[in-house]
Design a binder for these strands. Structure first.
Lengths: 220, 220
DNA sequence: GTCTATAAACAGATAGAC
DNA sequence: GTCTATCTGTTTATAGAC
């Protein structure tokens, strides 16, 4: 054993990886793991891209983290660029879908609180994907960039709509809803740069601190 | 002329640079430009790092942008890592020095307004340096990272002190001064992601919008 | 101070064996 | 599906001519 636990990586140098014996698939052709290698490639790539940056990570490093040779990666992605794009698109689509499922029915102020708490919880639970989706925008080919940028704008527009409703209802003061939505999202996403699960404040504490600032910043 | 036959590099992506004929140094040895090449190397590196990322930019691309061969760059930096580090350290030190010069004498709320306006003005005037100093942290060697991280914390501490004074004086409500300082800086730095000088809003307009949100978020 | 040439390592991606 | 081997081009950095 000692392997097939997905993350037996040596990390510090991307070396060693030996073994990939999988008891439950022993009947398969030796070395064949199509059903689990795909997700592991994406997980390893996401982790490495977040840590070192897309351009600084080689396909060989990703392969080493997964426990396969570099050539095997091309069974799961046509090229490195598409691997990055799929990770980013997947994250943005999950973000939008999760918010659309969570969006409450109450008034604008309740919706703003829901957005604040949702954004903090969702983003801190997927720090690597959030980081990559923001930091690697400039490494996307133009066509791919346009797609991700569009999804990002969609998300901002969700918050912008909340702020507009609040302003129209008279419960909020928002001179520039579009700018305010970007400002608030930037503030909330900043949590990821310092929050640690083992830290002094619980996630509930963090939500409370930020919701207080968000509420005050737009309150009528 | 035509660039003293120096530049004129093909470089499909980073050409043009159209040599800078400097009349006052024409008497020098042909091809010798020590007094101007250094700054141009830093400017080109900053611009390229901001556009494409440190890891994605080669020394040859920087050289082509300057109009010299790659080997010549090593007269101005011992290596690529030091070039990045010097750019980031220079930016952070200038940021701190500029705020320390500008910091006003009034009460905490006046200081907060000054900080808000200063941060927006300074950062939008040096977008490339701001971008690089944040995005390339993970490409710094540990010792260099520690230096930049320390300078960044120093800057945050300046704002934190303002918020603490306001809270102590009773003119502000700030439950977590450290977190609030990071939240506000994240919000203000976000201006750089969308602000354009040719846009609908002037810099004064932008300052007013953000100052309104900042003030409301901490007002007692 | 800049050039040309080069060293030594590494990149993304592919071909064919098993 | 994975491996080994390889193709082709690029990387940082240095050496020595001018």
């Amino acid at each position: 054993m000692s392997c097939h636990s997905l993350g037996a990586k040596g990390k510090p140098g991307f070396d060693l990886n030996a073994c990939s014996v999988k008891p439950d698939v022993m009947a398969r052709t030796q070395g064949s793991h199509s059903d689990i290698t795909g997700p592991r490639v994406r997980e390893a790539a996401l982790r490495l891209f977040a840590r070192h940056g897309y351009a600084a990570v080689s396909m060989r490093q990703i392969a080493a983290a997964v426990g396969v040779q570099a050539g095997a990666l091309y069974n799961y992605t046509p090229d490195k660029q598409t691997l990055l794009f799929d990770l980013m698109r997947g994250h943005m689509e999950e973000l939008l879908a999760a918010w659309d499922r969570a969006e409450p029915q109450g008034d604008a102020m309740a919706a703003l609180e829901a957005f604040t708490r949702f954004h903090i919880r969702f983003n801190t639970s997927r720090a690597d994907a959030v980081f990559v989706s923001y930091m690697e925008l400039r490494n996307l080919e133009p066509a791919n960039f346009a797609v991700i940028e569009g999804l990002r704008r969609d998300y901002e527009t969700r918050l912008e709509a909340v702020l507009r409703h609040g302003a129209e209802a008279g419960t909020m003061v928002v001179a520039e809803p579009r700018i305010a939505s970007m400002a608030l999202i930037a503030m909330l996403t900043g949590v990821n740069t310092w929050y640690r699960a083992q830290g002094r404040l619980s996630l509930a504490d963090v939500e409370a601190v930020y919701w207080d600032m968000v509420r005050r910043s737009v309150e009528g």
